[in-house]
Amino acid sequence: METENVKPVREVVVPGDLLNEGDLKAGNGTYVLDGKIYASLLGVKSIASNYVNVIPLGGRYMPHPGDSVVGVVIDIGPSNWLVEINSPYPAPLHVNEVPWRVEFGDTARFLNLGQVILAKVLMVDETMKVQVTLNESGLRRLEGGHLVDISHSKVPRVIGKGGSMIQMIQNMTDCRIFVGQNGRIWIDGEMPNMLVAEEAIKMIAAEAHTNRLTERVKELLENRKTGLVE
């Protein structure tokens, strides 16, 4: 693990910090003033394929088309549901966007208040009107289980490189886990196992900035192994 120690320390920038370096283009979390690029977010500076980006350290989730999100039904209309997806804007789910045939006004029979769903963001327009869909394979109602909310900026860390982290938790706790891009995570399994998986995810979120996290999570899971149900 020597290589991890020589990794260059990534620079933390605050809004207003100058990012200009050579002929780079302004990417996410930046703005341009008088031809110079400045950070507009508190985050970590990163340079990828000629773009300077600021990767946020916090902030609210903003929906993007194609994101898988875990949402909660908060309102029911005659031909649509309102889904809360942890962003500033609630997302309507229209009856045309579900895999069932729903009669007008019969929406509550299919999804009731508080129902948790795994949905996909269908479209977001410039006025931030969001639409989600269930019409795709893998998208569905989520019955039972636990929800864990973390910051959306920690999601890549929970998933790990190529899904390594989340797979390890799934295998060792024998739970089914869905991680929404909005930072909402659904866990289902035996009760003691769910609690261990929850603990592991909270630990990842709290220590997302540290190195060799996978090893420490593995250690935690092994320590808790005796309490798990096969």
Binding site: R10, V12, V14, V44, S46, L57, I159, T210
Partner: peptide, 17 residues
Amino acid sequence: QKDALKRRYAVETPEVE
């Protein structure tokens, strides 16, 4: 002000996957 914000993440430099 800038120092206060940076201090909060002084040790917390996240790796990005």
